[in-house]
Simulated assay, not measured.
Amino acid sequence: MRRLLTINPWLYLLCFVLLVGAVLGQQYRLFERVWFSVQEWQHGEQWREHSLWLGDYRVAIEAKPISGISDVSALTFDPDRRTLFSVTNKPAKVIELSLEGDLKRTIDLQGFGDPEAIEYVAPGTYVIADEREQRLVKVRIDDATRVLDAADFQQLSLGIGRNGNKGFEGLAYDAANQRLLVAKERDPVRIFEVLGFPHIDDSRPLALQVNTDPKRDARLFVRDLSSLDFDAATGHLLALSDESRLVIELNAEGKPISTLSLLRGQHGLKRGVPQAEGVATDDEGTLYLISEPNLFYVFRKAQ
């Protein structure tokens, strides 16, 4: 009589643990993060000299509430006014903040369905991203601005991989190359490069081009994208992920070279950042961050 083959139940358990570990590792991009840590350790001294090097940053202002505001999303630095701008979508508003996170004013938005990002592109000129419609709107803001109606301004709609409310979530502007970088939140994570919008020079014809970089996007070991920021001094891009609790610095070739963790105990944080939605840097390298519902953070490089 043939004997039945028996398998040790511990082997079943081991296989199950390995399977779960593989799934979680893929879902949270753990293998890529471990490999990046090895690369960062090997090349750290070389990369530090030519980058922001986020590992050296420490929190200076932590979780400061922005009075009278909720549902903040995105952040951009205005070098002319030396203030920060953000947007809220319930209700739809642009808000202006001091560099210490104090509310200076609010501007009502009309004709915007789901504003999720705002980006400074030139003196008095900004782009606002409407997430679900995948629409970009060029607006003008000055001291007297109290209301912005989307119908009054230049617009661009991009129906690229539309996926409900997983649309445009972050903006960054490279002024030297006049390119607008647009982050798609997830499913899949993407960064689009838009050339020709906003149309700054009315004396020249509109020439629109949209590019992607699949290799760069594949290197983004994050689960989603919440915000972008372009640092003109280094030519590097910052990508913020809420779900991965991470800011990644990408060099000009799109390769990750440094990170800033938003978990408790990292970079001096007493508590983890609950829902990071916006990141910006100023011309002195100071990093600003906001989190829903209304929390403001400042990180500065340790001397």
Rank of each mutant, 00 (worst) to 15 (best):
V87S: 02
V279F: 03
V59M: 00
V210N: 09
G159E: 08
L5Q: 11
D130H: 06
T212R: 10
L295P: 01
L250Q: 03
W53F: 07
P293R: 09
T145Y: 05
G265A: 03
I118K: 04
K166Q: 14
A233C: 07
S227L: 03
F16A: 10
G21K: 08
L238C: 02
V72C: 04
I290H: 00
A276V: 05
A218K: 06
E292D: 08
R300Q: 12
S157Q: 12
D143E: 15
S51N: 04
L158D: 00
R3F: 15
G254N: 11
S241N: 04
Y297W: 12
Q178D: 12
L24V: 13
P123T: 07
N163G: 09
E292Y: 13
N8K: 11
L195D: 12
F168D: 01
H236P: 02
E185W: 07
F16L: 14
S261W: 05
V273G: 01
K64P: 00
R223M: 15
R29G: 07
K255P: 06
D187E: 13
S226H: 03
R271K: 15
L287P: 04
Q178H: 09
Y173D: 04
L181M: 14
P188W: 06
F16S: 09
F153Q: 02
D130C: 12
L240K: 04
L180R: 02
T106M: 14
T106I: 12
E249L: 04
K270N: 15
D231R: 07
V210I: 10
D142K: 05
V222T: 04
K215W: 11
D231E: 13
V94A: 10
N165E: 13
S70P: 07
N294G: 03
Y12L: 11
L295H: 01
P91S: 12
I160F: 06
F299H: 03
D152R: 12
A276H: 08
I66E: 02
N89V: 09
A63S: 13
V59W: 01
R132T: 11
S203E: 14
Y297K: 11
G268W: 00
G196Y: 08
M1P: 07
I118D: 03
R29E: 08
L195Y: 15
W47L: 14
A150P: 08
I128N: 01
V23F: 13
A144Y: 08
G113H: 13
P274C: 11
L136W: 01
D56F: 01
A122Q: 04
S226Q: 07
D217Y: 01
I160E: 03
T83H: 15
V127M: 03
Q155W: 07
T6H: 12
L19S: 13
